[in-house]
Design a protein around this nucleic acid. Structure first.
Lengths: 213, 213
DNA sequence: GGAGTGATGTCAGTAGCTGACATCAAGGAG
DNA sequence: CTCCTTGATGTCAGCTACTGACATCACTCC
């Protein structure tokens, strides 16, 4: 090795995560055992479970960083920022995190699409982001249920925007997709309530688009 | 027994679900084995797994009915109904399902609060409702991402409304909580965008309430 | 009355996950 | 220099969730 190091190879955690992703792609998620992952990283099954509570968790490495970033970003929003804007700005600030990892994110998404258990984990991570955002809003004086709704709505926009970003052939920035999603959400909520149908030929009234994605 | 019956006691599925809930409450979720649940229902572990794919799944019995109700309700919404209104109406139509089961729902919620794995399952059920709603909207001519956003926003409102309904000391109807949540969501999205702070004394601008909960 | 059917039981096996204890290099205190 | 502590790892035994294969046996239909 080039760099002198301690008793063990460094970055055990990263090695495990890398080994796991590779093996999952090569042989599928369920046909990969934790023992195999550990072996490929030069470690033991027991050590794997010291780094990750779960076999699933190995796919959700960076989520703490996102969590932290969202919280500080909302906390630091300028005075007078509307709750949903604060959340949206926080979510947009995550774009750089993903910018260089679109391929990685795609590979991950493919796995998620095929395995409900992994989607479950993804959803609870997002829900945890939402509740952290809500709590930060509350710390700024936003009352319930406004705080929770702003947070949940923001996360809903993020979910949709993220999926479309992964599929976007034009590879536009994630933050643009978020902005567009927000505009769509505004249109969806604005066009609501008892109303006279203005386009009788259409099955359901459609809100106008606010911005091009 | 009063009613002549076949070779086995009827309602194996319900017996299992009932036994599970009781045992979870008495001894906690992880300290209850599937074998114990099955034994209490007069069945075998193997049979349990014929009815439920999972140990967790035993707590999510009625979700198919909700799914179906939401789909038909959105599909049957009158022409010209705005997407979010169709979703909201569908969610409100679920209120009768829960009306008589507030205690049951509370017991369940207590378990969910204590066990992340159960919350994961709850979240994926809700997400599945959202995507079913979105697909039904699409079937009515609503385009993406409007359909997904309306569905996700609706589910977000439902999540918040449901929690508040469970805690509501006045025990107001779930559908009222949903309506109130919708109004709040509208306020949250309407008050958004670059703006001049109107209340400099408050840390964050607060949208006005539209209705009393 | 015999064949088929469907809900259940039995059994053996895999793999995720945990607790308890051992190991062993690095670094600091004496 | 030696001893002792510390922290990351290994070893081992064990539990339980979950699965596949096959057996059972009352009921039903021909």
């Amino acid at each position: 090795m080039l760099v002198p190091m301690g008793r063990w190879e460094p970055n055990a955690r990263d090695r495990l995560a890398q080994a796991a992703l590779t093996l999952f792609q090569e042989h599928g998620y369920d046909r990969t055992t934790v023992e195999e992952i550990a072996a490929r990283a030069g470690l033991t099954e027991r050590t794997f479970f010291r780094y990750f509570t779960d076999k699933k968790e190995v796919l959700f490495g960076g989520s703490d960083a996102l969590h932290e970033r969202i919280v500080t970003c909302i906390a630091d929003a300028p005075q007078g920022t509307a709750p949903l804007d604060a959340v949206a700005a926080a979510l947009e600030s995550l774009a750089p995190f993903f910018k260089d990892r679109r391929d990685h994110a795609r590979a991950r998404q493919t796995l998620l699409a095929a395995h409900a258990e992994l989607r479950e984990r993804e959803l609870i991570k997002l829900a945890s982001l939402a509740s952290a955002a809500a709590e930060t809003l509350r710390g700024r004086g936003v009352t319930e249920p406004t705080a929770s709704l702003a947070a949940e709505a923001g996360i809903a926009v993020f979910k949709v925007a993220f999926e479309r970003w992964l599929e976007d052939p034009k590879a536009q920035d994630l933050s643009r997709h978020i902005q567009f999603g927000l505009d769509e959400l505004r249109a969806v909520t604005a066009s609501t309530g008892p109303r006279t149908p203005t386009e009788p030929s259409r099955p359901l009234a459609r809100p106008a688009r606010a911005r091009k994605p």
